[in-house]
């Protein structure tokens, strides 16, 4: 199954984004951003299925949450 990850600098923001997606019936989970992607410091990623990329972006935008980067399975 293909997943897409949105790296976010704040666990609070990641939690809000994950909740917003879950409330819309989308399965979202939060994981530590791997060092290969993260430039240093704490970063968390919200993971959804690849096909939910649009919903993820829209939810982040509606909450005013800045996505640091998008990546696939590392």
């Amino acid at each position: 199954m293909a997943y897409i990850y949105a790296a976010i600098g704040s666990i609070t923001s990641a939690t809000r984004l994950s909740r917003k997606l879950s409330q819309a019936g989308i399965n979202a989970s939060i994981l530590h951003t791997p060092a290969a992607v993260n430039k240093g410091g704490c970063s968390y990623s919200v993971r959804v299925r690849e096909r939910e990329r649009g919903a993820l972006m829209a939810a982040a935008e509606s909450l005013g949450i800045k996505i640091r980067s998008m990546y696939n399975d590392v």
Partner: peptide, 20 residues
């Protein structure tokens, strides 16, 4: 500590992390 932007010495400027 806010659980965000740990690499920065500056307090996050976004809510709610800025105040929590």
């Amino acid at each position: 500590g806010t659980g965000s932007l740990s690499e920065s010495l500056l307090q996050p400027d976004f809510m709610p992390d800025m105040l929590q």
